[in-house]
């Protein structure tokens, strides 16, 4: 075992880490947008849209992320939509994350009792004011643990993007391995970097959560 030859590649590792973080954040943002839109659609009255959202969720939750990525990257070009590796990965991961977000956001919104909404209406607040001031804060708090743990799974899941040669951390590992032939050492380091990132996010989320949600829990 010899980790020294890897030191030369520290810049590549840092670049890969940055791309991984970019990919994670982009997919998380778009995924949450999809999730919010989907949750609103599920609560809505239009039946075909509800059915469409349900199918989307089942389709993306019951097939491997890897296959979804392959379809976006290898198959969409047949329809004239050729995406570069990073963009393809961002699209595939957004859709995957979105499918999980819908349920999380919906159950967050559902967790707020109807009586709270009524109380807001009785004080003469508008629908938007009720949503923003009454419904959203407790819904966010209830959805927060699930969203953040899903975020960490997404961070780890971006490693799949290496399979379409997006320049993220895991792909960088393959590159360094091909130059140094130190396979085990490379992947040991890569695992450590992912672990460090995952732990940092968990700690960050715990701190942010403690600062943002200070009100005592309902008894």
């Amino acid at each position: 075992m010899n980790f020294l030859p890897l030191w030369r590649y520290r810049d590549q590792l840092i670049d890969g880490t940055i791309v991984t973080l970019e990919l994670t954040v982009i997919a998380a943002c778009f995924g949450l947008l999809i999730g919010t839109a989907g949750a609103v659609a599920l609560k809505g009255r239009v039946k075909p849209t509800r059915w469409l959202v349900r199918s989307y969720i089942e389709l993306f939750r019951n097939t491997p992320s890897l296959i979804q990525l392959f379809i976006v990257f290898f198959v969409l070009p047949n329809f004239g939509l050729k995406l570069p590796a990073f963009e393809a990965a961002a699209v595939a991961l957004s859709l995957y994350f979105g499918a999980y977000s819908v349920e999380i956001i919906r159950s967050g919104l559902d967790s707020v009792p109807r009586s709270q909404i009524e109380a807001g209406q009785c004080l003469g607040l508008s629908g938007w004011q009720v949503f923003f001031h009454i419904l959203l804060p407790p819904a966010l708090r209830n959805a927060y643990p699930a969203v953040t743990s899903q975020f960490v799974l997404l961070l780890l899941g971006t490693s799949l993007a290496s399979q379409v040669a997006a320049d993220e951390l895991f792909h960088v590992a393959g590159f360094i391995e091909s130059r140094t032939y130190r396979s085990f050492e490379v992947y040991a380091i890569i695992c450590a970097v992912y672990f460090a990132m995952a732990m940092s996010f968990k700690i960050l989320f715990a701190v942010v959560g403690a600062l943002a949600f200070r009100w005592p829990r309902r008894r």
Binding site: L156, L160, F170, Y187, I190, C191, Y194, A198, M199
Partner: peptide, 22 residues
Amino acid sequence: IQVIQGVPLLGLLFFFYFGMPV
């Protein structure tokens, strides 16, 4: 649990694939 859940599944696979012989 923290360590295993803090590493990509893909990372675990490569780690042991190349690590077992080591």
